[in-house]
Structures are given as C-alpha cells and as structure tokens.
Amino acid sequence: MKKPEILKLSLIKSLPILCSYLFIGTAYGILMQQAGFPWLSVLLASTCIYTGALQFVLTTLMASGASLLTIAVTTFFMNSRQTFYTLTFLDDISKTGRRRLFMIHSLTDETYAVNCTLELPPKEKREVMFYVAAFSHVYWITGSLLGAVVGQLLPFSTDGIDFCMTALFVTIFLDQWEKSNRHFPALLGLTVGIVCLLIFGEGQFMLPALLLVSAALVYDNSRSRKEEKA
C-alpha cells in the first residue's frame, strides 16, 4: 500500500473513534470548565494523560481536593488495564522505531479495539496503527478543547453532562459482562463498591474499594487454580 492508501484506510478505521472522542471529549472539556479548571489544564490533561475515563474521575477528584496519593492509586487501578493492551501489541510496537514512545502513550481502549480488527501484512499494519493513533489523539484533544472553550458560550445549561461518564462505564461494563461467562468479578466489584461507599463515605471509599477488590480477586484466582489442579 502507498502512503495515501494507508492514510485513507487509517481515516476510515478511526471514524468511530472520531464520533465518540469528539462527543466525550467535548463533555470532558465542559465538565472541567464547570468545575472551574482553565482550558490550559484541559489541554495538559488531554495531551499528557489521554485516557477518557480517568480524566473524568480526575476532574471530580481534583474538584474535591483529593490527596495526590489517592489520585496516584486511583490512576494505577483504573489504568492497569492499559498494561494488558500494550502486552497484546508488544511485538508490533517494539518494531515501530522512533515512534515507539508515542505508540505506547497513545494506546487507549478505543485504538486497542480498532487495532484488533486490522488484518494486514505486519509492516502496513504498523503504519495504520500509527496513523489511527495519531488521528485519535488529535480528535481527543480537539474535542476536549472545544468543550473547555465553547462550554461557557452555550446558550443552555450543560448541567448533567457528567452523566456521559456513567454511561461510558455502563457500556464498558455490559460489554465485559457479555464477553465473560463468569460474573463473580463484576458482582464483587459492585458489592464491595457499595459496601465501602456506605462505610467510608463519598470522599474516601475509592481507595479501600479498589484495594479490597484486587486482593479478593488474587485470592479467588489462586483458590480456583488449586481447584483446577486438584
């Protein structure tokens, strides 16, 4: 494939990401603006962090003045899935040369999903992966800046736009539910989440909930492995 064809295919492959990043990005920008954070912080977050779900949560954490430790631990747990994305494309990414750091930085839920659908010869696949990643990052930054700047000009109230984040999580949750035949982890997460919320309250429950869930899952895994061996 020649360069124009690579670019065209990358653009087509990235179209679903365009729709969702522009919309969710704009919602994120509006949310940041509502919470009183300047557009520069939106640009900084969307460029350097670049994971939609966490950026939403970070907005509410920062607005409530959460400790930097809570922010670090929440980021760690929320984004631990990214590690497994990189792992899937370890071989492809390690052959991208100078683009490697960018390829590592730009792997998100959405680009991961698109990369999984690419059936091309290795060299062309890596080219398309790069351009899909580059386009998607631009969509995300554009959307969030749009929200941060246009949010205050909108003639109607944008109260409730934060539901975007809830909706995003519900769709991911359902997707994972359908893909797995064992629902214990999902139900465990719900139960521990609610119990911790009742015990520790709104401001403090994330940290204990995430730690408890991980510990319980490691324990459950080691137990089910012993059963398999027995």
């Binding site: 999580f169 994972q176 991980s214």
Partner: peptide, 16 residues
C-alpha cells in the same frame, strides 16, 4: 488478574 480485574474495576467506577 488481568483477565478479571477490568470488569470488577468498572463496577466500582459505576458505584463511584
């Protein structure tokens, strides 16, 4: 852990 963690984390996030 990587196979089961995401759906549990997502559930906690919905509660959040």
């Amino acid at each position: 852990l990587g196979a089961v963690l995401p759906s549990a984390i997502m559930a906690v996030l919905i509660v959040y």
